[in-house]
């Protein structure tokens, strides 16, 4: 659907926040779902780009957090308020909310991976699965600029712990350095999104401490709707060594223990 850009705000040299009016998408969106956005109608770049839905409102606005990663996102960053973009969505299977067994939940974000975790925190709180102080966000990145949306989590009343690889913000180190001691104290369900290497390390920690973990994966996609089978990930299969599942349909959120890393 054609959507009007409301704002396209630069957060820091690498990251942007795009808000568009997309009522149908806002009405249906679930935490962890994504959209396929066409940055322009030309042939280069040709394909749509997948983005997690970061926030949405009853009025029909949806928000996307993005990083300048290449040609497509560079063009996207040049769009001004009033421009029209074509967006397909909401797509994919988001996070599954366990409604019973209230425990503290840990949300683990690697830089831009924070995007789908905000609506998850909002949903957990609004559906009264947890109170805000039962959720902790662990946000990691290379440097201070990679730590995003901390304010939004703070506004929800969620506890936030930060680390950066260069020590420019929060503790110096990897997000798994924050996660390991917490799991050691009290194994808690983990919801994670970030680079594959980080997710793999998070999945390994959760396996070690025997706690459930859902990961939101990223993959190059052509269609986003399950037709091209381009975005597959290797997962456990019952009667075979493995199977391929589509990140766009069976995911992007998978149980970490099912993924063959």
């Amino acid at each position: 659907m054609k959507c009007r850009v409301i704002t396209n705000k630069q957060l820091n040299p690498r990251y942007y926040k795009l808000t568009v009016l997309a009522k149908e998408i806002a009405d249906q969106a679930q935490p962890g779902q994504f959209v396929m956005l066409q940055v322009n109608s030309g042939f280069d770049p040709l394909l749509r780009r997948p983005f997690a839905i970061h926030r949405w409102w009853d009025g029909g606005e949806i928000e996307i957090l993005y990083q300048i990663a290449g040609k497509g996102t560079r063009l996207l960053s040049q769009l001004c308020a009033g421009a029209v973009v074509d967006i397909l969505g909401p797509l994919g299977k988001g996070f599954s909310l366990p409604l019973t067994g209230v425990r503290p939940f840990l949300l683990v974000a690697g830089s831009i991976g924070v995007a789908p975790l905000l609506p998850l925190a909002q949903d957990l709180i609004s559906k009264q699965v947890l109170t805000p102080n039962q959720i902790t966000l662990l946000a990691g990145g290379k440097s201070q600029a990679d730590i995003l949306a901390v304010q939004e989590f703070g506004d929800l009343g969620v506890r936030v712990k930060i680390c950066t690889e260069d020590g420019s913000f929060g503790q110096k180190g990897l997000v798994t350095d924050l996660l390991a001691p917490l799991l050691q104290t009290a194994p808690s369900p983990v919801f994670a999104c970030g680079p594959t290497g980080m997710l793999k390390a998070v999945a390994e920690l959760c396996r070690q401490y025997q706690t459930p973990c859902q990961v939101s994966l990223e993959a190059a996609m052509a269609c986003g709707v399950g037709a091209c089978q381009g975005c597959v990930v290797k997962t456990q299969a019952e009667h075979a060594d493995f199977k391929f599942q589509r990140v766009c349909c069976e995911g992007p959120v998978f149980e970490a223990e099912k993924v063959i890393w």
Partner: peptide, 23 residues
């Protein structure tokens, strides 16, 4: 048929390459 391991697609100027492997 299971098809090829990922990555299976890559965008190129005004096109895309795919090696889905007939899954």
């Amino acid at each position: 048929h299971q098809g090829n391991p990922p990555p299976r697609i890559v965008e190129t100027p005004a096109g895309m390459l795919n090696a889905i492997g007939l899954e």
